[in-house]
Design a protein around this nucleic acid. Structure first.
Lengths: 234, 234
DNA sequence: TGTACATCAGTGAACGCGCGTTCACTGATGTAC
DNA sequence: TGTACATCAGTGAACGCGCGTTCACTGATGTAC
């Protein structure tokens, strides 16, 4: 991350980010499937072959865009989280912040949302680097639970639920990774809230509320508020 | 639906379903984006142009496949529902049947699931006829709630939740369509369960449990069981 | 029952498209002495 | 500071691909009298 020294290096960075910016715009406009090196080159008034000085293939460029999408969403979530934790407030109020930020981001970046949570591009393997922003996102979402638990405000017995050893082991990676010192029951509940959250946003974004739910925002808020109760934040 | 009269009509129906069968196989193999009239024609040993006697365009064929996918899923759900209602059993046990059938169908038909609940094909409008199987699916899912309510076994106050007029109006199409005589609170809860269900299946199918949940089936069952409690079936 | 005409499935060639990627090249920028 | 060489961004032409769709046609099937 040191400052580029030579003029060549400086120009290289500039051109790289110009390519990414145009590619990002095309992605936002038409989706990943329609992303074409030639049309990006056309808009940049370069020869198509010139792009190969910057990205080794279309897939490499798409990987960069996917990573950017993850990072953009994670940034948004972390900022929303930081904002709500900067001022005093109840757990439920804090809980709501990240889901809302995610929904707002999704509505503003539908194709990017689709890239992350929609149909995987066939024959395409997601870049490994996405685990970092993915973890940041999950961390931001879950922080209200963690803080409430630490302060002994988390309700642990809202609903009856038995966790057997199999289930406990099944979610062990999350217990060990994301949550320090959280009983498996709460881990399962958090993962259920995660499923609900992704589901409710995707259903809205992919058009399934048409003729079904007239005010998706009201329903979304109610759903997230309901999840707050279930995970013990009320 | 009368029996075809002439030999020509009989052959026409046969060829149409052969085309659909091959198209279905290609869809299952490579996904909707890769669906190509020419490759279908190749496999059928026909000229590509011949397909235009049966489908007016690639989009028309894709529409037929989408409709088939909806109907296949709805059939599966209704059969699972009928099976579990044919024998005595508790509400929670009955509730579990359709979600499990949906998950099993999704695992067996991932590309079809993606067609219904994944990223919408850009620039493509879903055929209107899908509302019928969609309603059948939703009806099968929700039947345990409806029956429990009718028999006065549905718990109406599991969790605190306020439904204001805005939210009530927002879900009115569902209240009027799918649910006869159900309070809006239960309608909202059912829609939340729907979001959770679609979310948990999509997350598994689209690869988001990798390195996260080791036994997706255990987690799925726990999630559906949790939903049963929330919607008042336990 | 036989004949004349209409209908329609299927062919094969062609159109025009945009795509990702390669390759030999030019000319500018950077580096070593 | 000046020169010789290496590095590297960008060009332009070309390759080979598969695609959806159109169109004039052939020949078999169906229909009306």
């Amino acid at each position: 991350m040191s400052a580029p020294r030579t003029a060549r290096e400086r120009v290289r960075e500039e051109v790289t980010s110009e390519i990414l910016a145009v590619a990002r715009a095309h992605l936002a406009q038409d989706g990943a499937a329609a992303l074409s090196l030639r049309s990006i080159a056309r808009q940049l008034e370069m020869a198509p072959s010139a792009l190969y000085r910057y990205f080794s293939s279309r897939d490499a460029l798409l990987s960069a865009l996917i990573l950017e999408a993850y990072e953009s969403l994670a940034d948004e979530a972390e900022e929303a989280s930081a904002r709500v934790f900067a001022r005093p407030g109840g757990d439920a109020e804090r809980w709501v912040a990240v889901p809302r930020a995610m929904r707002t981001w999704a509505l503003g970046h539908p194709h990017e949302w689709a890239l992350i949570f929609g149909t995987p591009v066939p024959g395409y393997r997601a870049p490994e680097d996405t685990v970092v922003p993915y973890a940041r996102l999950a961390g931001a979402l879950v922080r209200p639970m963690v803080e409430a638990k630490r302060a002994d405000r988390l309700r642990m017995d809202v609903l009856p639920m038995e966790i057997d050893n199999g289930l406990r082991d099944a979610v062990a990676p999350v217990t060990d990774g994301l949550f320090a010192d959280m009983p498996p029951r709460q881990v399962v509940l958090a993962l259920q809230a995660w499923s609900t959250l992704i589901g409710v946003i995707s259903l809205e974004l992919f058009g399934h509320w048409r003729n079904t739910i007239l005010e998706p925002e009201l329903f979304f808020d109610a759903t997230i508020a309901g999840a707050a109760v279930v995970i013990g934040l009320v």
